[in-house]
């Protein structure tokens, strides 16, 4: 376990708990027909979360200090894929499912491991056209189709 992470997490959850408590005070208290309004349950939960976060904060004091061994993480690959996934989401509706999915998969495949570009293109094309064909044409589902300027 990581001391720093647990402390940050405890403080974050503490803040979330407090936020829910404060915000639940804004909700109208009582409603017709029930004594216990919609504010009670979130308020109690927020309170419990606050108490638990404080407990975790105290527990972190007892942790052994940070251990040396740490695995090198592939941050570059992760950010590359994560950011392309965000662009995928942003561009999905404007330029359509097939194009975005195809591009995302190519970038994804090449990021995880470079090489065999043709195989990547074939798999990406199969998946993006396959899903679109199956879902939209056969099952009549809704996916953003081709961009207007291509139609």
């Amino acid at each position: 376990m990581s001391k720093t992470f647990d402390r940050v997490a405890a403080l974050t959850f503490l803040a979330i708990g407090v936020l829910f408590m404060i915000e639940s005070l804004q909700i109208s208290k009582s409603t017709y027909g029930s004594v216990v309004g919609p504010n009670v349950f979130p308020f109690l939960l927020g309170l419990i979360l606050v108490v638990l976060s404080i407990k975790l904060l105290f527990e972190t004091i007892g942790y052994p200090s940070t251990r040396g061994e740490k695995q090198r993480l592939q941050y570059k690959k992760f950010w590359m894929i994560f950011i392309s996934a965000i662009f995928y989401a942003i561009l999905l509706e404007p330029i359509g499912y097939v194009i975005t999915t195809f591009l995302f998969l190519i970038i994804g495949f090449q990021t995880v491991e470079k090489g065999s570009i043709w195989k990547s293109i074939v798999i990406a094309a199969c998946f993006s056209f396959g899903v679109y064909g199956l879902y939209v044409k056969m099952l009549q589902g809704t996916l953003p189709s081709w961009p207007i300027w291509l139609k």
């Binding site: 894929i81 996934a85 989401a89 942003i90 990021t111 995880v112 491991e113 809704t142 996916l143």
Partner: peptide, 28 residues
């Protein structure tokens, strides 16, 4: 190979969520 598996899982997840919810908000 994980090379193909990992991006495909992401693509399936995004497709799945979008197909049911039909909003980009849920993808984020």
């Amino acid at each position: 190979p994980t090379k193909y598996l990992l991006p495909l899982i992401i693509a399936i997840s995004i497709f799945g969520v979008y197909a049911v919810q039909v909003t980009t908000f849920d993808i984020f």
